[in-house]
Amino acid sequence: MKTLIFVLGLTVIFSNANASPRDQMKIVGSSTVYPFSSYVAEEFGSVSRYPTPVVESTGTGGGMKLFCSDNSLNSPDIANASRRMKIKEFNLCERNGVKNITEAMFGYDGIVLAQSEKNKPLNISKKELLLALIKLVPNEKQDKLIDNPYQFWDQINSNLPHRKISIYGPPASSGTRDAFEEMVFEYQTDEIKVYRDAGLKGYRIIRTDGVYIPSGENDNLIVKKLSKDTAALGIFGYSFLTENSDTISGVTIEGIQPTAKNIATKQYPISRSLFFYIKNDHTKDVPAIKEYIEMFLNVDLIGEDGLLAEIGLIPLTDQEIKQSHERTSKYQKLTLNELKKNHGF
């Protein structure tokens, strides 16, 4: 008898599981965007008449995979991304019937290099950072690529201190790592003749001899390690630097401090844009999406004095906010050409 009830119960659940219009939104994606997205979700949940959206932190790549896997109402409504959608991902979406997507940019984030407070201020150029971290480097004559031999910063540039090169950073699955490799490695190796001659277009392989230490998606762990391992540097999002300013300090890149202002004006060289992508086909059956986007792209939240700026978001200019607002209010469809045109800015 009990088994019968149990089986009946299961069938009821199974038959109910298929999608019908729902109140609760589903959001997936980047762990960098997660704090902002869930902050908005909470505000939305407490102010609007809808339940708080579910926000999952899967990493940009993982989020895109979920977002593009299915167009039915069981799939996520919004994917957060700490980089632009890749063409590969766009094609995956198309193949699975997710053909109507809107892109919204909502802010900037700087990738900072930080060290323990106890150290003297350090200034590194992008080139030096490349040479410290990439797997193959040009030899002295600049005609051949050799395994990276540098163990101390002063071997790269004699003006740098005699300090062991040791850098904690995100693992390969992370969007932060992706953006970092693109901005620091790819753009530079494309410009250097030796790499071009070796046929290594877009070379971006990080060294694996223990100098770079992948430390998981938890940036707090890196912060903690830096206060113990004072020789090391760490790579993470800007918000972790502001929250921990008592134990760590930012390394200047090309002489530029990682501050909110420098990142917003794009003077700071390692900064990126943050996005979310909307599945337009869901807007009819999930009415909460519209209100959520309106709330998110409001100056009160993402503007210069907005609430998200307090937790480390680097705001867009008013002009850019307006543009994002325009795009989303008419659910402007994202096209392949658009992605191809300004890929990687």
Binding site: Y34, S38, P51, T52, V55, S57, G237, E243
Partner: peptide
């Protein structure tokens, strides 16, 4: 393991569990 502040009303609602909550907090910048 997601941001789900509302408590579930049935076993089909979205929910998080205690160790997952600890995991999420451990990763927060604040």
């Amino acid at each position: 393991i997601a941001f789900i502040p509302d408590s579930p009303n049935s076993i089909t609602d979205a929910a998080t569990v205690l160790p997952a909550q600890i995991f999420t907090w451990a990763g927060m910048p604040e």
